[in-house]
Design a protein around this nucleic acid. Sequence first.
RNA 1: GGCCCCGUAGCUCAGCGGAUAGAGCAGCAGCCUUCUAAGCUGUUGGUCCCAGGUUCGAUUCCUGGCGGGGUCACCA
Length: 581
Amino acid sequence: MDIFADFAARVAAALKTLYPEASPELIARAVVEPPRDPAHGDLSSNAAMVIAKPLGKNPREIAAALAEHFKSDPDVVSVEVAGPGFLNFRLDEPTWHRVLKSVDVLGEAYGKADLGKGEKINVEYVSANPTGPMHVGHTRGAVFGDALSSLLDYVGYDVTREYYINDAGGQIDVLAQSAFLRYREALGENIEIPKGLYPGHYLKPVGEQLANEFAGQLRWKPEADWMPIVKDRVLVAMLDLIKTDLANLGVKHDLFFSERTLHGQGGDIDLTLDWLRDQNLVYQGRLDRPKGQADDDYEEREQTLFRAKDYGDDTDRALVKSDGSFTYFAADIAYHRNKYKRGFKHMINVLGADHSGYVSRLKAAVKAVSGGEADIDVKIMQLVRLLKNGEPFKMSKRSGDLVLLSDVVEEVGRDATRFMLLYRRNEQSMDFDFALVKEQSRDNPVFYVQYAHARTSSIFRNAASELPALDLSPAALSAAPLELLVSPADIELIKTLAQWPRTVTAAALAHEPHRIAFYLYEMAAAFHSFWAKGKEDKSLRFVNPEDLKLTVARLALVGAVRQVLVNGLTVLGVSAPDELS
RNA sequence: GGCCCCGUAGCUCAGCGGAUAGAGCAGCAGCCUUCUAAGCUGUUGGUCCCAGGUUCGAUUCCUGGCGGGGUCACCA
């Protein structure tokens, strides 16, 4: 149960009864939330203040009327009017016990919601060019997209996790040329990879594979002949590398969508352009020369343009390059039309900071191809600066200057990588310091949270060994005498548990998984704090041989904490170990 | 020059239009015969970059500055 949503509904009902003239929209603006200062009570509502002005009434009078109304609510111990018209509730203990009970009953479902109502949503993330293994720059978006997808799934969306393979551009030809050189190398030639091609050693196995498969057959053929063959082989190989990297990071995708399938005669791009022409959204024209730094090789010419400006973009955008092939954007319009035609009315794209200039044209494209029916949220990942002891950091032996994603995971581990990258708003650029993440682990929130979970496990282990006769089965715990949990420490911990559902809802609505990470930190802190109280005051110990009933109730509480930690860590894709090594 | 992001404690960052702005680290003072001290308790520390505006109420929304980062036909 979500006590905040519950009371929001009660307040709304009260407003409807007391002020029938208030519109539903107005009532919807009233919220129930925890007050900033716990001294003010358990729940707080701004209902009187938001409704006062439009109704031409005094907020404190409205608050007083609401307070009067809630005096008969059996779950409420006291209601007070405070400040400019806040309504502050205090709840009785049985209500908190019901919250706790709902955690134990709902288990992994505690916190789940039905915001999505089963609607389809497409989350596109990573989409790294398939020209080599993933480097660290992709990591943040990968983890973010993965966690956001899990979060949306958790609140009832039908999520498709998608990877757009940019396998159609000129850089793929360059990749194939590079692989071809590795093929010749594998046949015994002495090869130096010229500038402009991909020098990475990861192409060597591709060359060897080609040599095994074709021996010398391709060597003297013209490029036009070997290009398609080599391209196919190298793309598969690169995608395998990427999939391995993603798997090591625990990042999942449902669909790898190939850009190449959009190209070609009668393909999606052709169809989309025809459709756009029918809608009069394409024309031949000239763009103004971009201001700022002078582009030496800028050549003004007439281009095929999409009317992005009509949909809020700063300028219209080119669809066809000077060599006659389609721009990346043309393919992307077709791709997003394809998503729309697959039934997605909600789309999210996770992009790197270098794509911030791309956002408005992407939004324009989605608006255009869906006739305004689909929405898209573009989440930009700001830069991650890699440091070691405060110094900029480079470490890969395998690929020159690039730090590979696999290096990071190897160095600091999957859980720490994921949690640290999620422990920051996506709009915030961040430093990722290996030394801090790895060595000074007490600075690292992931261990703090995982330690809390490990502690819950340890408590259950101890209870089982100290009191072997005690029934700790789920059934026994869900029948625990929760009414014995009356200490302020007990109630405080339950209040933190009570925040989980609203945290999930808020994070999902805002597409902000970092809120989950911060909540988990708070949950862990509340639990560690309770744990320490047991040292001074034996009556606050979880396992208490003197009082078996209380022990069972406390273990139900620990089980609830454990459950919420698991639920949150699962959303983030971080493991919940039973002990830390 | 245009556009995007950031600016909150010494440092790294949370903060949902609400009440006396929070956490971690660092600093200071304490707690290990213990349900794992990878933990806990107390405490010092603020012009929420600046100036206007909207609002009953602005760190939060809007406008204009200042500072930092990113990006800017055609690449992907």
